[in-house]
Amino acid sequence: MKRIILLLCVILQSLQTFSQENNSVEMATGLRSSGKIYVVVVVISVIFIGLAAYLFTIDKRLKKIERENER
């Protein structure tokens, strides 16, 4: 788990280095440079990881029922 968090931090860090300049079209670069978009990304990621983990537990439970059913 620690490794995953560390990896995530490294990815986020590396993304920060891509920054846009000379833009006539309005983009959320300000939001990005202030760093607050990361909060949103983390929130969405947490929700998604939660749902995916939930799917895994449903899968596991179903496997158990299938096994019992075969007997």
Partner: peptide, 28 residues
């Protein structure tokens, strides 16, 4: 299944953070 989770997670993180072309009307 793990691959699916990892790829979607990548799409959430990358999709929101990696630079996209700046186009009129579409913006972000």
């Amino acid at each position: 299944k793990i691959l699916a989770t990892v790829l979607i997670l990548y799409s959430i993180i990358g999709g929101l953070l990696i630079n996209v072309p700046a186009l009129p009307i579409l913006h972000e």
